[in-house]
Each structure stands twice: as C-alpha cells, then as structure tokens.
Simulated scan of single mutants.
Amino acid sequence: MMLSTAVKNQSRLLTRVSQFGVLAALVLLIIFGALRYTGFMSEYNFSTFLRYNSMFGLVSLGMCFVILTGGIDLSVGSVVALASVVAALLSPYGALTAVLGAMAAGALIGLINGLIITRLNIQPFITTLATLLGARGLALLLANNQGGVGVDPNNAAFTWLGQGNLLHLPVPGVMMIVAFVAGSVLLSLTPFGRHALAVGGGEDASKLMGLPVNRIKVTVYVLSGALAGLAGLILASQLGAGQPTEGVGWELSAIAGVVVGGTLLTGGTGSVWSTLVGAMLLGLIFNILNFENGKGVISLSPYWQSVIRGAFLLLVVLLQTRLGRRSDRS
C-alpha cells in the first residue's frame, strides 16, 4: 500500500512538473514574440489568435475528459465538419436553433461512440475511427457533396457568434473561456469529475467500488461530441458556410494539446487548465511561424503545421513513457 501511494505521488509530481514546464514555455514564447515582431502584442493579433484557436480549445477540452477516463476520440474532426453543416442548414431558423442543432448533432455522435464502446465492448480507437468516417460521409450527404453550405446572410446573430466581440473580446474566445471554467468546476468540484479520474486510474477497481463506469464513459464521449459541435458552429459562423471537408487532422491537434498539457494518455491524471495552456501553446507556435514567414527569414507552408503537431505529440508521448517507466521502477 505504501509503495503504491509513493508511486502515485511521484507520478503526480512528474505531471505537475510537466504542466508548469508547458506554462513556462508559453510565457517565454509570448516574451519572444513581443520582442521580435512588430504587431505581435497588438489587439488585432490577439483577437485573431483567440478567435481562431478557440475552436481547437473547445475540441481539446472534450478530448481531455475522454483521455482522463483512458479513452480516445478520433471522430471530433469529422464531428466539427458535420456540426458546421448542420448549423448552416439551421441558420435561417435563428441563432439559438443553430447552436442547439450543432451541439445536438455532436452529442449524438458522442452518444453513439459511448454506447458502442460500453455495450459492445469495442475499443475506443476502432469505434471512433468508424464514426470519423461515418460523420464525414454524413456531412457530405447533408451538403449534397458540395464544398460548402452557405449560412443565412440575414441572420446577424448567427454571424456575431463567430465574428463578433463581447466586452472587447472575440465571442468564440469568451465561449471557450466559459467552457473551460465549467469544465474545471466539473472535474475538480463534482463527484462526476472524481469518478472520471478514478475510471481512468483503474476501471476494474472503479467497478469494484460501485462506480457507474459505463455511464461515466458514455457521458465523456457525449461531452466531447457536444464541444466539437460547438466548435463546428463557430467554424460555420466565421467562414459564412458549413464546411463538410474541414476538420481533417483536428483530432490530432486536440490530442496533442491535451498531452502537451500534461494529461497522461493512460488516463487518471490531468488538468483542464493545463489542456488550455497546451492548446494555446501549439496555436502560439504557428502564430509565431506566420510572423517569421512575414519577415522573410524562413518560408514554411501551412503543411508544416501537421509536421510540427506530429513532432510535438511524439516528443511528449516519449517523455511521458520515459517518466512512467521511471515511476514503475521506483
């Protein structure tokens, strides 16, 4: 018992070190950008950065809860695309209808994921890979195989959700911050959050303790889908059209943000706010690369973003694996 407690304490300590390291890296990058680039600290750059990266933040938040329980959700990118099409189709009926419809579409895919995983005992990787393909196909069907579905140009409230400001902040950024506050409360201050961490720490032990493991797992997938749906709504509002071909690779960006933030891929340990820091760190790296391209020193195409995300994810997973082995030997 004492040995097990010592190992857990060491694992938590290593995770905390990782989380503070990511925060330090974020602060250093901000200082670097402020010193090197004209306009980096401008209101325009801050607003544009927050408006665009809010979508990745929302998807990463949902992914955080899934990974905390020891699962994975590869369908979120396709869910974003599907929700953007649904939101565009519902935009003539009002902004609230579009919001509810987009989130409901995402939650439905999440519910399907959760039920297949818990009732049919199919691995999350396989299940969400299947729904990734299914959601993408459904998005294309709803869009009649077109490149986009235009939103109602007369619905100013719908456009405001993606392009407007609230209290001098981009509305998508405000939505993301509210979501993370709610997610932090849910994880830290409610029985559901403690139970989700327990399931990720040991599913069999959680069942022996009488926790509703299957219900918890279904709930986190529904939450992930709903947040991806909200990101899809923002995407449609920003671009003025539902985008059935968008969201490719977003699931990897979300996983990278969560893992870079210090959440263990094996589940049981992690933080909502560290996930936000990880997602913003990745977004800031690409923002700095755009400024560097503007200086003419380097010239990197947008495809390099995928290379960088992959390298970051691999590096952090390798680091987590090494730290985990040290913890096991201890």
Rank of each mutant, 00 (worst) to 15 (best):
F192E: 02
F192A: 03
F192N: 01
G193V: 05
G193I: 03
R194S: 09
R194I: 05
R194F: 06
H195P: 00
H195A: 14
A196K: 01
A196V: 14
A196Q: 05
L197P: 02
A198C: 08
A198T: 14
G200M: 11
G200C: 10
G200Q: 07
G200L: 08
G200H: 07
G201S: 06
G202P: 02
G202T: 03
G202N: 15
G202R: 08
E203M: 13
D204F: 00
A205Q: 10
A205K: 02
A205N: 03
A205D: 01
S206F: 00
K207A: 12
K207N: 10
K207C: 08
M209E: 12
M209G: 03
M209S: 14
M209W: 00
G210V: 06
L211H: 09
L211F: 11
L211N: 12
L211D: 02
L211V: 06
P212V: 11
P212Y: 10
P212T: 08
V213Y: 04
N214T: 06
N214C: 07
N214E: 15
R215T: 15
R215H: 14
R215V: 11
R215S: 15
R215F: 14
I216F: 11
K217M: 15
V218M: 15
V218S: 04
V218I: 15
T219Q: 10
T219V: 12
T219C: 14
V220E: 11
V220G: 04
Y221Q: 13
Y221M: 15
V222P: 10
V222D: 10
L223D: 02
S224H: 03
S224K: 05
G225R: 00
G225W: 03
G225F: 02
G225S: 04
G225E: 01
A226T: 01
A226L: 08
L227G: 13
L227N: 02
L227H: 10
L227Y: 03
A228P: 09
G229M: 13
G229S: 14
G229C: 12
G229P: 02
L230W: 05
L230T: 11
L230N: 07
L230P: 04
L230R: 09
A231V: 10
A231H: 11
A231R: 09
G232I: 00
L233G: 06
L233Y: 10
L233R: 07
L233I: 08
L233P: 03
L233C: 12
I234K: 04
L235S: 05
L235P: 01
A236F: 01
A236Q: 05
A236M: 04
Q238M: 07
Q238R: 15
Q238V: 00
G240D: 11
G240Q: 11
G240S: 08
G240P: 05
A241D: 05
G242Q: 06
G242Y: 03
Q243D: 09
Q243H: 06
P244L: 03
P244N: 04
P244I: 00
P244C: 09
P244E: 08
T245K: 00
E246W: 06
E246D: 08
E246S: 14
G247T: 09
G247A: 12
G247R: 02
V248Y: 04
V248N: 13
V248A: 14
